[in-house]
Amino acid sequence: MMIFVIGGSASGKSEYAEDYLMALSNEKKKYYIATMQVYDEEGQKKVERHKMIRKDKDFITIEQPINIQNAIDKIDNFDCTALLECISNLTANEMFSDINHKSAEIVADKIVDGIKRLDNKVSQLVIVSNNVFEDGIVYDNATTEYIKAMGKINEKLAECADEVIEVVAGISIIIK
């Protein structure tokens, strides 16, 4: 079962997704698949904030900033749940980790394929993604390609998902 949660920056989407997974998990083992690479103090603070929010939620953290399909081998075979946080970091890491940036198409296909396989492994998968589409700014080619990749990934995952939920100011809106 796949649950897709989308929202803007500081919309409360992560907390919502964590609580959602908690409610689904009961006594099951819960994995938190973290994708953020920390480069500086600000990134570190963000990670710390997220750790604080989930500190009593009993997650097992898997750091998987790239090659999401590799997370599968780190998860028990037994009935368990996972939260993937988040698509925007994963996409940036896949796209820009190499000096030759990959195309939106290649990145999107790789990520969607990896996530589908991950979804087959766990009983419930909650995915957090970002709305990066509405600031009306015309960006450089690399960023535009990134936005396109995000769009494709969100579209494909939302299609696969059993539920799609948008979070706005901490309020959840069921889209699918």
Partner: peptide, 8 residues
């Protein structure tokens, strides 16, 4: 205004 729906 909602301002979070864009690129960081």
């Amino acid at each position: 205004d909602e301002v979070g729906n864009g690129i960081v």
